[in-house]
């Protein structure tokens, strides 16, 4: 049932701001991974951060061994950034030059920026930084897709959908759908399903030039 992994353990970091639903996305991925036969370790770093702080979920998949709940520095294979600044912050700590990054291009300024003490970097600069320092980058406005479907709260499932379609996660969409059916009912289930499909569509409809901006051809073929 479980497919061979590109790396053992496969380290995926989901990061964002309190309230964006990244802990739930990590749980959905983890539940689907356990059901698909993997050993999974998740570390949720949220602290008191429902109050606007950084939230990160470390997800580590292995075929056999149990790993600790934290990804070592520089060893994330994939970073899913729910917010541009947080994608960069996570890359600096946990990524390396080969890390793939999917980023929701929807800035949420920290309070120091609101108060004018610091500046939010220009989005073009952040994109250039990610391009120059990753193995591949996909930016998308997942929040806009989620809002089109009825609620910004589904941003997390749009990103999860894009991640699954990218092939970076060794899971079948059906495994995720099964988890959604376990967790939700009625309208909420429908919203999450649509969001997952919308995220997959973002990937499918992107041209190779839009996907993995900056990545070398051989890496591209290795993941697709």
């Amino acid at each position: 049932m479980a497919r061979r992994l590109e790396a053992e353990p496969l380290n995926i970091l989901l990061t964002g701001v309190g309230g964006q639903g990244n802990v739930l996305a990590a749980r959905v991925i983890a539940m689907a991974s356990v059901a698909s036969g993997y050993q999974v370790a998740v570390g949720e770093t949220f602290g008191a951060s429902q109050r606007g702080g950084t939230v990160a979920s470390h997800v580590r998949l292995a075929l056999k061994d149990r790993y600790g709940p934290l990804i070592p520095r520089g060893e994330a294979h994939v970073i899913v950034g729910f917010e541009p600044l947080e994608a960069c912050r996570a890359l600096l700590a946990y990524g390396n030059i080969n890390t793939y990054v999917l980023a929701n291009w929807r800035p949420l300024p920290p309070v120091s920026v609101l108060q004018g003490e610091e500046e939010y970097p220009a989005l073009a600069d952040l994109e250039r930084f990610l391009l120059e320092h990753t193995g591949g980058l996909l930016v998308l406005d997942a929040t806009a897709r989620a809002q089109e479907l009825g609620s910004a709260a589904a941003t997390n499932m749009v990103l999860t959908g894009a991640l699954v379609a990218s092939g970076l996660l060794p899971l079948d969409p059906q495994a995720l759908d099964q988890v959604l059916k376990e967790l939700f009912t009625d309208a909420v289930l429908e919203l999450n399903r649509k969001a997952l499909a919308a995220g997959m569509a973002v990937w499918e409809q992107s041209t190779p030039q839009q996907i993995w901006l900056g990545c070398s051809p051989n890496k591209d073929s290795a993941t697709r």
Partner: peptide, 18 residues
């Protein structure tokens, strides 16, 4: 040392009231 050589430091995200 595997870290990135960069001067870029994202602004910190202090906890704040909702």
């Amino acid at each position: 040392e595997t870290g990135f050589r960069t001067e870029f430091r994202p602004p910190e995200r202090e906890l704040a009231f909702c």
